[in-house]
Amino acid sequence: MTQKTCPVPQNLKFVFTIVKRDVGEAVAAFYRSHAISYNFISPGYGAAGLEIRDYLGFSETEKDIVISVCTEEELAKVLPAVVEEFDLEKPDSGILFSIPVAGISGPRALLYVTGYEEEVQENSNDGEKKESGDE
């Protein structure tokens, strides 16, 4: 059986937020509170800054990379709030950028990353509810 990729709404974005280690959890929580439910945190290392600090061992290089999926409209709303909340205007506090999504593995994945997985779960739970009703 051949499986086709799902067409993606034109405005879907992958948002990368790179912050200091252990701040990633707070960033993900902040996105969740703004209805962006798919957040993926990966550990990484920063390589910016003055080289002399690297030699002296002063630079805190451990980072959290938060990958989130949202629409362009959602990002436009949340971006100023994220910049303010996590002081991204200050040097060394973190960066944020977004990449347009061109394709996704299927409708279920699309629903999952865009935060509508609850609807899918409700449908799949229908059978279980009927069973429990029989008892």
């Binding site: 974005k13 362009e72 100023p80 910049v83 991204l88 200050k90 960066i95 950028f97 977004s98 990449i99």
Partner: peptide
Amino acid sequence: LPVDDVAGITHLTTPC
């Protein structure tokens, strides 16, 4: 990859 929105590059551009 093309990048659309950028924030936090204080040393390269305007803050946001």
